[in-house]
Write a protein that binds this DNA or RNA. Structure first.
Lengths: 250, 250
DNA sequence: CGTTTCTGTGTACGTTATACGCAGCACTAG
DNA sequence: CTAGTGCTGCGTATAACGTACACAGAAACG
């Protein structure tokens, strides 16, 4: 924290932590990093990351395109800052209620955050988590496992596993939502259309197992959007539970 | 298959299935779709998807940029075709050895495929699986679960869960590999650098659980690259195993 | 043989990120 | 108080991108 002049800190990470020395020599800056990031988030929320171009953000922030480069090294850095600002701090985690309840709450909170700001899922990941809010979420996830006898290494792996899972499931949900909106139809109808397509394409002789799934009518109607999420979440929680029980027993 | 004139089949899917009517009226085509796709794959394999531009692929295929558009509706479609060609057919799955062994083999095969062709991970997913090889992989995964008493719906969810997991874990592995190569260092060193960075940034008062992980030395050295993959895979397999046992019991 | 329809290609347009240079401002050294 | 210096915002310029469009020519059909 104090060692902001540590040479080892990559530039984009440093920016995310707010350690950017701006010596008071030249004219007063007319913009602020936070303002630019907020402008970027406004654009992304309104029209998706596809609309987040430097010129568009600059217009939203009330400046010229090139002015942004006085605050941000490149577009990637802006995106990373937007991401960090968007995810914010995790809700408080109480491991007293048990690791399973705590991790479940963590996962749901994470999912809601993604669904509320779908553009965050389109920001390309640029490295291991190192921005303040990313670390805060990791800490929260680890806290959920604090009372178990897992090895620290295992806790980290598990949190990453869940983090990955939630992110992916949210991506799928958002993609489906986007596809549905693009054709202006209902979720049920979209699934049914997909089912019909597969019925057309899948030769039962070539893909017998898949044909059985289709014949069972799985793709004729849509589940509630969160049911798929719950299913996978429960499986992984079960698997982790086994390991926790094993470690507790030894 | 035969109903290629089905109006419901999206254009890109139709292309992937090879149903594209090219009536014999005009001059003989000088290129082939397969040739173009192969050229695209050659470019991607050599220099990554970033290098896959229409002009570059055209040059590789020995034609002008715009010639590609006689075979491909847009760049997205080309990428989808490249993807489908790259994943190929899954290895034969023998559920006789048990669902767990079969799913494990499936997951490893899938992972190897991603690692061998890292660019496939950067191709944006454009919809639910519908190309021939994608469906073949799905069928193979479902076959692994064929002898269980799971509901068809559950089988599908489980295969998607694994598919997602493998894809993500491979993405992380490839990203790490790329980062390591970019700085021209070793994996161990890269992890250690990350550990040092976190030691610098993480205030134990603010992120106690995370600080404990770091203090435990988890980030001082790298595991074998596949260990993280195995860990998550085993957890999910365990979780799925619980459900299978439950369904078998009832 | 004309007509039709498809082929490959060149040109042109709109966007993108961003390197560079300039004019002016605010602070610091003298 | 007065240079000087290093920062500010900005306009211009460049290179690359996907692709719409128009055109010349080739092959098949009537």
């Amino acid at each position: 924290m104090e060692l902001d002049s540590g040479i080892g800190v990559p530039a984009n990470i440093a920016a995310a932590w707010g350690l950017r020395e701006r010596p008071g020599k030249g004219p007063k800056p007319g913009l602020t990093l936070d303002g630019i990031v907020a402008a970027g988030i406004r654009v992304a929320a309104a029209d998706g990351i596809g609309a987040v171009s430097m010129s568009r953000v600059a217009a939203e922030a009330g400046a010229s395109t090139m002015a942004l480069y006085r605050y941000v090294r490149a577009k990637d850095e802006l995106l990373e800052l937007m991401m960090d600002a968007a995810i914010g701090d995790p809700p408080p985690i109480a491991p007293d209620a048990g690791w399973r309840a705590a991790l479940t709450a963590w996962a749901w909170a994470c999912r809601e955050l993604y669904l509320a700001q779908p553009w965050t899922l389109r920001v390309p990941i640029s490295g291991p988590p190192a921005t303040p809010h990313q670390l805060a979420w990791m800490d929260a996830g680890l806290t959920a496992l604090a009372d178990t006898r897992l090895r620290e290494e295992e806790k980290l792996s598990i949190v990453l596993l869940f983090s990955m899972y939630v992110r992916n499931e949210a991506t799928v949900a958002v993609d489906m939502q986007a596809a549905v909106e693009a054709v202006d139809t209902s979720l049920d109808e979209a699934i049914a259309t997909y089912g019909k397509l597969l019925r057309l394409l899948v030769d039962p002789a070539r893909f017998p197992a898949l044909a059985r799934v289709i014949e069972a009518g799985v793709l004729d109607r849509a589940d509630e959007p969160y049911e798929e999420f719950v299913f996978g979440l429960e499986r992984i929680l079960d698997g982790v539970g086994l390991l926790i029980a094993q470690r507790a027993g030894s």
